[in-house]
Amino acid sequence: MKVKKIRGHSRKDVLLLNDMGLNVMNKVMSNKWIIAIYTLPALLLIGVLIFIPLVLTGYYGLMDWDGIGDMSFIGLENYKNAIVDGKFWSSAWHSTLLAFFSTLSLAIYLMISMILASKLKGADFLRKIYLIPMLLSSVAIAQLWIKVFNPTNGMLNYVLMKLGIENPPAWLAEPSFVLFAIFIPILWQYAGFYILIYYAALKNIPESIIEAAKIDGASPLQIAYRIKLPLIKGIVKVTIVLAIVGSLKYFDLIYVMTGGGPNGASEVMASYMYKLAFASNDFGYGSAIGFLLLIITLIVTVIIRKLTATKDEIQY
């Protein structure tokens, strides 16, 4: 047998070294103190960068503060204002719509992944194509789609006019269209991410199960719906949580494309929070909205986990 050399060691040596390394590793990992020390840096980072700011945000939410001068404590006033603030609720509604559509779009991503995973010719190439938008920054995507949606010179309206539609809408200027118009680039932006996850999960299903189903005479649709889908249920659940939570705190693309406009028609919770804190100089109220956003996201996550909870883990 030909032995491949890896950096001067034969493969056998490397395997041996690896084994020894694992043994040492296991020994180290059985000491609780060492585990604590090793996790400390990450814990510190998370604490300083995430949990302390979270608590501070909640604290600022109790203040009347313009972000520059002195703060004064006003108790729950900001939260009370938020509850009767029509703009906050309309932004919350827009966030909810976004979450709803993002969840629906998971079905499209799943369908595409199933097609890609079924030994399609060129599937690998297509998968990479779908992944490209994920590599672009949101700001670049936003700029790109602003150009596509441009009412006079944009690609979309050009095509529509060629198709004989006389007066196609100005997508980003119509309060009734704007949210849907923005949703299209979001759908496009995240396609690669979810397809990647689903594709990996589908590839993990042992071929033997599919073979067995085929021998039993299951149609491709039945295989997809009754075998593949239940087997990747766990992953689907995770993506639902990701999609909903991600939509609830969605900000960047909307901020660049419309700034929440026209007149708040595409305002979401995060953009409204930013506007209050940085444009209206109302840091206290902005922090309160930010904290509410956190609480809403937490509650929604817990609800989804509860709704989709199952006991049986799949073992192949």
């Binding site: 602003i146 980003l172 406009g261």
Partner: peptide, 21 residues
């Protein structure tokens, strides 16, 4: 005003003026 002005940024409007549109 040009079509869809509420969705256009000032930069976009400026480029329409400067492209003689």
């Amino acid at each position: 005003f040009v079509k869809g002005f509420n969705g256009l940024s000032d930069e976009e409007a400026k480029s329409m003026f400067m492209n003689e549109q």
